[in-house]
């Protein structure tokens, strides 16, 4: 039953959701959709507890057993404790909470995001090596696009910007749409596997 119940819940929910999406159920349909949304949000909040509990347990155990780099774990546990206390006392809109979110969390988040620029350079360096035909096509397309985006491109070779735009609009769009159509139908088929209970590894029932 432990394995079967989630499958039944998924099947019933899928049927209800599809009926709400496709059928014209009027006011009652809208109310039911809102209620379903509330149920989903509430169950998410309960499930949210699992993650932080595991995180604290793991890092507390690292500190207790003095594992390698245990100091980082101690720092994490300390930060979690401080944030929990501050957010409870100061509330999420309070000045201290806002400072933590805006000036510490968002700032470090942005720093990690900014690293992307450096990684783009190293990835570009590796991928633009003339290893094979595909890499050569990628290199030529990238050079044309980069030249097309800069005013100097048209000065060196006339109409480079128009050709670059054509690459974006025609072959690039065609490829992206092909992938999107395939992925959408694939997602659809994967959902059917889950709804019909053919795909049940997510229940922890193995293969």
């Amino acid at each position: 039953m432990k394995r079967r119940l989630p499958l039944i819940v998924v099947l019933v929910t899928a049927i209800v959701c599809m009926a709400l999406k496709f059928l014209n159920l009027g006011e009652r349909g809208t109310t039911l959709a809102t209620d379903l949304d509330t149920i989903v949000q509430t169950s998410y909040l309960f499930a949210f507890l699992f993650g932080p509990i595991h995180l604290i347990r793991l890092h507390y155990s690292n500190v207790q057993k003095r594992r390698v780099n245990w100091a980082y774990s101690a720092f994490l546990v300390g930060v979690c404790a401080v944030c929990t206390v501050v957010f409870f006392i100061n509330r999420i809109e309070g000045p201290v909470s806002t400072f933590i979110i805006d000036s510490i969390t968002n700032a470090t988040d942005s720093a990690i995001y900014a690293m992307l620029g450096f990684y783009v350079c190293s990835a570009a360096y590796r991928s633009f090596k003339l290893k094979n035909v595909e890499a050569t096509i990628l290199l030529i397309a990238a050079v044309i696009l980069m030249l097309g985006q800069a005013p100097i491109g048209d000065a060196i070779i006339p109409n480079t910007s128009k050709f670059a735009q054509w690459i974006l609009d025609v072959p690039n769009s065609a490829g992206m749409r092909g992938i999107r159509i395939g992925a959408s139908i694939g997602a659809f088929a994967a959902s059917i596997r889950v709804i019909l209970g053919l795909e049940r590894s997510w229940t922890g029932s193995g293969s």
Partner: peptide, 24 residues
């Protein structure tokens, strides 16, 4: 893209799962 969704069917080699990929 879609190769991700074919993964479970491909790895399990289960004809029932493979069937959904064929339908796709």
């Amino acid at each position: 893209g879609e190769e991700l969704f074919a993964a479970s069917a491909y790895l399990s080699k289960d004809p029932m799962l493979t069937g959904t990929v064929v339908a796709q």
